[in-house]
Structures are given as structure tokens and as C-alpha cells.
Write a protein that binds this DNA or RNA. Structure first.
Lengths: 134, 134
DNA sequence: CATCATATTAGAATTAGTCTAAATCTATTT
DNA sequence: AAATAGATTTAGACTAATTCTAATATGATG
């Protein structure tokens, strides 16, 4: 049977599937630790290390997207298409959006930096709608 | 005497000045630990915690810029004007450049995300000139 | 020069993530 | 079904970056 992971030799084990389901079930962007807690509800013996291993596996298979902002832990996103992020300076909320114009700047960025481009990502910092009210 | 820090109540102590000098003396983007090592050459008793405290102080005073990509430690940059970064996927090299067009996207990003915008930052990932050759 | 706030120090604590070695699964072969 | 080989999982030790804590030092002010 053909896998849908793109890495046909390796398997979507019970543990990896549990991790994937957690991420797919959520609108937000959980950390590895939040995923670990949630996965335990379904698979009480799953370990810390396995969650990290599974996240690496799923990321390499292109099934989830990792977001790192250095403010604490990496976050994981079920949205794997190219997109951008907004982060609230007050509460830390993280929101996805896509700005196609950002993608268009890749060549210009490559020219300025002399890098061979692979991807571009735009980050907006500001105040989220909730914190704006308060 | 008026301070040039913008935080007129607080002082540029010997330790903070040493940290600032290290950052200003370098073309690259040292980590807190690299700054700690270098600062010790001038001020042998300076502590780890003081370097972190000084970095926070200098950042808040607008004298240095912190760069966080989640891959390991924060890096510090003497360039405090808005600018963008390119990171090498192979060797991790970090390069500054400015893409004024990125700044122009702030309003569009704000519209899409519904955030009140404060700043935008573009990150290019790819291969640096050195790794391209190899 | 006594006081009081602020800064510094050394080291402990915390957090995120990786590593290790033993145990367990899963296929596949007999 | 038993044996095997390879991949995966587990628990816990470990590491690196950063923050916290409590005691000490510094330095401006009355």
C-alpha cells in the first residue's frame, strides 16, 4: 500500500499518527510539550522523546510545519503551504496569513544577500485585535 | 549630564559599556555566550547574568538589536535600523540586508492579519555564497 | 559619611530539546 | 508459529540557553 507521506520506506506509526492528529485537530499552534500532553490522552505511554522524533518525522514528510521565533518553544502548524505570521507583542498570540507579495520578494532578497534562495517568510509584529481593545 | 541611551534614569555602567563595545566591535552577530567570553577580556569578573541583564538593558535602550531564530541562541546586532536577514540552511550563517519593499508590505500584512502593525521583518532561507561553491 | 536604590555576582533552577541504551514492534523468512 | 533483523519507542540522563535568587557591592544623595 502506498503511503501518503512521501517517505515511502518509513511508516506512520501509532505514535506519529497520534501526534499528527493532535496538530490537525487544533486551530492554534501548539508547542511540543502541549502536543505531548494531548497525545497522552490517546496514547498514555507515549514519551517525550517520541513526540520530538515524531515531529521531526512529520516535518520531513511535509505533513506539518514548524515555526520558530526564539520566544520559547517551537510551535507546530497543520498548514504546510507557504505563509506568513503575525505575533502579538502583548500576549504572544500567533496568527497565520498569506501575503503573496512577500513571496514575490524572494528574488530581490536573494540579489541583495547573494544567497541562493529557498524560501521567504514575513513576520509582522504588533497588537492583535483582542489586545487592541484592552 | 544627559545620557544618550534614551532611558535617562538608568546608567551605562562599566559592564553594560563593555557589552556594548563588544557588539559594536564586531561585524558578525555574536551570541550572549560569545559576548560573555569577549567581555571577560576587559572585565574579568563580569558574570553571565550581568551579560544577559546588560543585553536586555541595551536592547530596551535601542542600542542593540536582538535576533532570534530559535536555532540555538539569540544573536545580537549593532545595526538597530529596520533590516532583514538571510540564513544559510547549510552552515547557519546570518547576513543582514535591507529590502525597503518589505517595509512597504506592513500595511498589507496588517490588513490580512487584523493586527495593529508595529514592525515587519523578512527572512530569506537559502544557501550562502560559500556553501554554494562547496 | 549614612542611607537607599540599583547593579553585580555566583551559582542554582528552569526550560526546551537531544542522546543513549535497553526494551518492544513489525515484517519477513523459515 | 519461531527466529531474525531493522526500525521504533521508552525512560531517564544530559546539554545548552536563559532566568532566578540571595547576598554583596556600588554609587548618588541628603
Amino acid at each position: 500500500m502506498v503511503q501518503e507521506t512521501g517517505k515511502t520506506e518509513e511508516k506512520l506509526t501509532r505514535q506519529r499518527d497520534a501526534v499528527l492528529r493532535v496538530i490537525r485537530s487544533r486551530e492554534d499552534h501548539p508547542t511540543a510539550n502541549e502536543i505531548f500532553q494531548a497525545a497522552r490522552d490517546h496514547l498514555p505511554t507515549i514519551s517525550h522523546a517520541t513526540v520530538y522524533n515524531s515531529l521531526r518525522f512529520l516535518k520531513e514528510a511535509g505533513l506539518v510545519h514548524e515555526i520558530k521565533f526564539g520566544d520559547g518553544a517551537s510551535r507546530y502548524d497543520r498548514e504546510t503551504d507557504r505563509h506568513d505570521h503575525a505575533i502579538c507583542n502583548d500576549c504572544g498570540k500567533l496568527v497565520d496569513f498569506d501575503l503573496p507579495q512577500a513571496a514575490d520578494l524572494m528574488q530581490a532578497a536573494a540579489r541583495k544577500s547573494k544567497f541562493q534562495p529557498a524560501s521567504v517568510h514575513l513576520t509582522l509584529r504588533g497588537k492583535c485585535p483582542d489586545c487592541r481593545k484592552a
